[in-house]
Amino acid sequence: MKTALTLEQLTLAYTKNLTTVENLNLTVPEGELLALLGPSGCGKTTTMRAVAGLLEPKSGRIALHDRDITRVPANKRDIGLVFQSYALFPHLTAFENVAFGLRLRGVQKAELEQRVNAALETVALLEFAKRFPAQLSGGQQQRVALARAFVIRPQLMLLDEPLSNLDARLRLEMRVEIRRLQKQLGVTMLYVTHDQAEALALSDRVAIMNAGQIEQLATPEVIYTQPRTVFAARFVGFDTILPVQPLERRVRIGKHEFPYSLESRFNRAAWRAEHVRLGTGVWAARVLARSFEGQQVQYQLESELGVIQAAVPSATAVWKEQDSVTFDLPLEQAVWLVE
């Protein structure tokens, strides 16, 4: 597979003495949708601005289809950008917003109209072509921003938390829409988000970013089941992360030892709430809180290991607040980590 985007040892900074992103490496194959997932302030937007050419890297290299674009100005990069704020031109109609890039490229009138209309049709906004951004809803503006970015047939599209201003339902719809569009256009896409569900649902691969570094880069399935760092595990929903001590064919957790062969380098174990088994096991706890969530019931337990999150199918969730309960942390489901 051909490589679309390459970032090599990319270091980014807004001020002289504080680097926001350091020595970042990333390759995105052609046609892939890669999600850049990380908490607020970790440098996602910064990275995206550098790729778009709006922020000059301190050091490192950016290449697009084997062409070094590190020093190419943003207006010569052919990258379609969708801002978190949409950044539509307030003085232009939806049609003219989408036409903006084409006019700059000197596309002739007939072709221009045909391409703009096709783009607006793709995002189901043809009848809103004459409206100004202020007359469009958030979701509609978001779709104009999307159309404006892909109508120039960019080699790469960058989307910066494009759904974060939308309500929950629209977010789900647009997620599907963006994925469909990306497949249809076959365009390579870098998708920035801090919503893990969105990243997992949408992408071919997910890069988990923390403090300007990529902690793990893998498919959604792998990210979901086998996070490789404590940060990644916590970020994708492993709520219970405990110190462990590998011994000879045994593992020590708290004051108990369990038979298990574990490489000696690991010192943490992580479980999702639904991995925790209630009503059996060696650990004693008291129910702090219980919340019904439809399919399952979420429990917050106070135990000798600290506060533990557990999720139990509703049918078997018989425990009430203040009840005493025992629980088990199944070693075969644990993810082993190093901190």
Binding site: R49, A52, G53, L54, A74, N75, K76, R77, D78, I79, G80, L81, F83, S85, A87, L88, F89, P90, F100, G101, L104, R105, R148, I152
Partner: peptide
């Protein structure tokens, strides 16, 4: 005038 708007134009190819 939000700065993003200028950046958007710039990245769409405007000098």
């Amino acid at each position: 005038l939000p700065r993003d708007i200028e950046d958007a134009a710039f990245s769409l190819g405007a000098s």
